[in-house]
Structure formats: C-alpha cells, structure tokens
Design a protein around this nucleic acid. Sequence first.
DNA 1: ACAAAATTAGAACAATTGTTCTAATTTTGT
DNA 2: ACAAAATTAGAACAATTGTTCTAATTTTGT
Lengths: 193, 193
Amino acid sequence: MNTKEKIVAAALEVYNREGIRTVTTRQIAQEMGISAGNLHYHFKHTEDIIFTIFEELQRDYDEMVVLFDQKDATFQELLQEFTEGSYLLINKYKFIFANFVEICTWIPAIGDAYRTLVARREERFISLFEHYSKLGMFRQDIPIAILKGFVRQIFIISDFWYSSFAVLGGRFESDALEDYRQTIEVAFYPYLI
Amino acid sequence: MNTKEKIVAAALEVYNREGIRTVTTRQIAQEMGISAGNLHYHFKHTEDIIFTIFEELQRDYDEMVVLFDQKDATFQELLQEFTEGSYLLINKYKFIFANFVEICTWIPAIGDAYRTLVARREERFISLFEHYSKLGMFRQDIPIAILKGFVRQIFIISDFWYSSFAVLGGRFESDALEDYRQTIEVAFYPYLI
DNA sequence: ACAAAATTAGAACAATTGTTCTAATTTTGT
DNA sequence: ACAAAATTAGAACAATTGTTCTAATTTTGT
C-alpha cells in the first residue's frame, strides 16, 4: 500500500469515526504518522481525498450489483443479498451516507456521479420487479407509477437509513445490521407474494 | 421583533440558503446589518442559535400535530394534513433536515430532544392506525411488528425525504411538494383499504 | 431627569486551517 | 554508480473563525 492509498484508508477511518465537521487534514496526517505537507503533496485539496473515497464506493457498488445477475435466484434470496451487500457498503462508507447532502453540495462531481448511478439503479430495479412478477414472486397488480414510487422509497430508505439510525442514537454494529434488515424487509412486505 | 429574534430569523434564512458548512456568524451578522460582536452578545455560541431554531421547529411541530385530534376525519383527510403540515415544516427548516446527523452529533441536546419526540410520535401513529383499522380504512391484517416497522419507515421517509430530494438535484419548490406528496402516498398505498 | 442596565460597533485576540515553500532524503531508471 | 525524479518533514503563509474586550450609545425604571 503506497502513501496515497494509506491516506485514503486513514481518511476513511477518521471520517467514519468523527464525521467531517471536525476532522482536518492535519489530523489525518498525524494519525498515520506523516506530515501535513506530505499529505498535501499527494492530494492538493481535501476534496480530492473525499472524491477518491467516493470512487472507491462506486467500484464496490458495481461489484456488489453484479451478484444480482443470477436470474435463477428466488426473490427472497436476491433481497437478502441486496440487504447484506448494501449494508456492508453503508457501514464501510458511513460518513458519506451521514453527510450526503453536505458532501454533494461541497463536491459537485460527487452529486453528479450519484445522480447517474441512481438512474441506472432505478431501471435495474424496475426490470427486476417485472421479472419476478412473471415468476409469481412479486405482486403483478401494482400500477407502474406506484412501482416507480416504491423504487424511490427503497432508495431513500437504503441511502438514508444510516442517517436515521445515527440520529436515533444507534451504536452497536450487531443492532445496526438487524435494524437495517428489518427496515428493508418491512418495506418489501406488502409487495411480495 | 427584537435583535435576538432577528438573529434567529436571519440565521435560518442563511443556513437554508447556503448550508451549515460555509456560513459563519460574521456572515449572518453582516447580512442583517449588525456587528459580529453584537451577535455574540445575544448568542454566546453559534450552537445556541441553532438550538433556538430547533426549539422553534419543535413548537411548530406541536402545533401541527394538534390537527390530528379531529378523530372524525377520514384517513385520507388525515394523511393529506400530515403531508402538507410536515412538508411546510421540512421546507421551513430545510437545513436541519439536510444536516441532521452532523447537527445531532455537534449539538447533543438536539439529538436528545429528537429522540424524545420520535418516541411520542411513534405511539401516536400506532394508535391512529389502530383507530382507523377499526373504522375499516386501514388494513387490519398487519402484524404489529410490521406495523412498527412501517412507522419507522414513514419517519425515515419524512425526515430524510428532503436530503434525498436535495442530492437528486431538486430545486423548484412546486416540484418539491409534489414529489414529497407522492413519496408519502406510495408508502401508504399498500396499507389503505 | 438621571443613574443603572442593556445594547451596540469595532478592534483585538488566539487558535486553527488548508495549503505552499524549501531543503533534505530516498527511490528510480539507465 | 549516478543524475533526475519522487517523496518527505517541517517551517511558513495567509486567510478565516468564533469569541472577547472596550468604549460609546441607547434604553429603561424610577
């Protein structure tokens, strides 16, 4: 792991632990035992570090999404994979989810990338639902407008569940996964057969 | 309106417009034409301003919630009132919803107050659902565990809808209300009769 | 009307922050 | 082996920030 990668790893850890409000580049450098000057030799601006972390998140996400292509899985299996996969992502990049609005306005490139991602994600979900409708595992009587709204709803829940969990004072990791799993499950509950 | 109230009003406006990251007490003071020294005479710490705004939000919320007590309304009417009322709140205090995690960790008293509010809100919703179940306007076959999960879901959506709307690049206010209304409606869709 | 209290502006302070500069050291390619 | 390029530490810079201090002005209560 070269210095650049070490900086990214250290930044991710410190941001996750303390949030973006109080953490400084000096602190990140200090925690990993290099000078602040050195850190800024590798990343001219703090934004560049965060953007690099976001790119990592995107790569992780793409890897996870590949798993959805096993079209022979039952809907329940798929749902479980989605839940576990997205939880891992949310947990790994906590601070991004917890400060998403601020980060997106601070670093517009991240907002743009997110919007592109959402568009792709939306289509994928709709087509999955249609697929599983035909297999009789997902309700067929849902109007398309509602279905789109439901997808939106799932995204709000999965993208901001951690924010909610955090403000509700959630701490322990075991609680966290269970809470997330249940929230997603309940959202799907009325749509499954 | 005395200076203290003016500061609160100005802070709310500036925070809503620019977020909490870049706004300084100096800027707030300048925009309202008073000195920074004067501002800090009225509010020793920036946190005190934000906490005061949060107290205002709580008062507004309590006022809104009173409207729910007309037990002769149909569920549809109640839902519409909830949607419009909560939208007004979210819109008025945008910046709090957009930076909720950060604010709650920065100012623990706000986190505490929120958690108390949530507990009250939860009970109220459950009892409303039970009431309307008996009247045949809300599904009766929902297990209590799911019902609680559903309430949680509604809270995530209403508390973080604005965050989602903001990162998706939403701007125009007319779009905003329509988007919020639809999201809430879709969430209730499978539970109504 | 006038003393005490409240309010205000503006200078000043002290700490912090992201970033740059400089000079030394290390690594790399040939 | 050695010149060029990359990396590093630490000092330095420039700007900013929340907050305090001081002295003047205004308001309030009697």
